[in-house]
């Protein structure tokens, strides 16, 4: 009965949930860091805020589609079960999605908001109480910092939760270590960073060295953290009991070896790290200016996203293939 029951829908969901968390986190950080009373990286913050709600929404839809009984998804909210990561997670997702929508709203220009509100069909608009309409019209930019701060724990929660969902399953030795949650969190934040970087790069008019440098430094730290979790994860696994050793063997010399080592570790983790460090080399050596090679940056960002996705893929499938004997 070792057939996987969670498949690509779940891989995608875990990836997208994490991605949103990362986007929100980075955007929040960019909002929170201020210079002279204004956001240091307004465009990063705005991009992050604009993107953040969507992956998680799509992911949640996928999650619902993966249910045997999609129409019963509401039952998730008829209960709160603190012992079930999925129960906590689904509440967390709702909170996070609402928060990220509010954050998005706060980052819209006044005109954009008016534009959106005017698109509501008249018939529907009549039904919306005036007080609510007035409330929606208020300039929300003042709440940005507040929402950013409020969002940190929730975003981190969502990022961690995707890992906890797997890590909490004691039956699967591949997952059942307290390193998985952090690994997923840092991977999530890293993919969020990379996505904003990618968005900024694609948005050609506004390439800004300062912003890029910020994103690079974030990403270097996050990738390094992730790497130093993957490493002990493997070492720890090798030194652990037989069942865990057998589980780790799935990536060390089993069906997932290529995906894990080549796609995730080398391409998805180490290569972008090397690229980003290379770009930073002049600064680190104090011999000049950080300069941006857009092609390298795009490659690095793309690889980070690939790595993040591969990590979920490997964990979802290898985890289900592992078990006690």
């Amino acid at each position: 009965m070792h057939e996987p029951v969670w498949e690509f829908l779940i891989v995608n969901y875990l990836f997208l949930g994490g991605l949103s968390a990362g986007l929100y986190f980075v955007a929040g950080l960019a909002t929170w860091l201020t210079e002279d009373g204004a956001s240091s990286y307004p465009r990063i913050a705005r991009w992050g805020a604009l993107l953040a709600p969507w992956p998680v929404s799509v992911g949640s839809l996928l999650l619902i589609f993966d249910l045997g009984k999609p129409l019963r998804f509401w039952k998730l909210f008829a209960h709160f079960r603190w012992q079930s990561p999925m129960s906590i997670g689904s509440w967390l997702l709702v909170g996070f999605t609402l928060l990220s929508l509010a954050f998005l709203w706060s980052w819209l220009e006044q005109g954009e908001r008016e534009g959106l509100l005017s698109r509501i069909p008249a018939r529907l608009r009549k039904r919306i109480p005036d007080r609510a309409m007035a409330w929606l019209r208020v300039d929300a930019s003042a709440w940005r910092r507040g929402l950013a701060i409020a969002g940190f724990p929730v975003a981190v929660g969502v990022g961690i939760y995707t890992g906890v969902l797997l890590g909490a399953v004691q039956a699967r030795p591949f997952w059942n270590t307290n390193l998985v949650a952090q690994m997923f969190l840092f991977s999530a934040l890293s993919t969020g960073t990379a996505t904003i970087l990618l968005a900024r790069l694609l948005d050609r008019h506004e390439v800004d060295l300062k912003e890029t440098r910020f994103l690079y430094s974030m990403d270097i730290v996050l990738i390094a953290l992730e790497f130093f979790i993957v490493l002990p994860y493997l070492i720890h696994g090798e030194l652990s009991v037989e069942a865990v050793q057998e589980a780790i063997a799935l990536v060390l010399g089993g069906p997932f070896t290529f995906t894990f080592w080549v796609l995730f570790l080398v391409l998805g983790l180490l290569t972008p790290l090397v690229i980003e460090l290379w770009e930073f080399k002049p600064v680190l050596l104090g011999r000049g200016q950080f300069h941006l090679n857009e092609r390298w940056a795009t490659t690095a960002a793309g690889l980070v996203i690939l790595g993040g996705y591969t990590l979920r893929y490997v964990f979802v499938f290898a985890g289900q293939a592992s078990g006690f004997r």
Partner: peptide, 18 residues
């Protein structure tokens, strides 16, 4: 049961099925 299959994965004995 909403069919999330989490319990199937959580069972060390693979005793559950969809």
């Amino acid at each position: 049961c909403i069919g999330c299959k989490y319990c199937i994965i959580a069972c060390p004995y693979d005793a559950r099925y969809h």
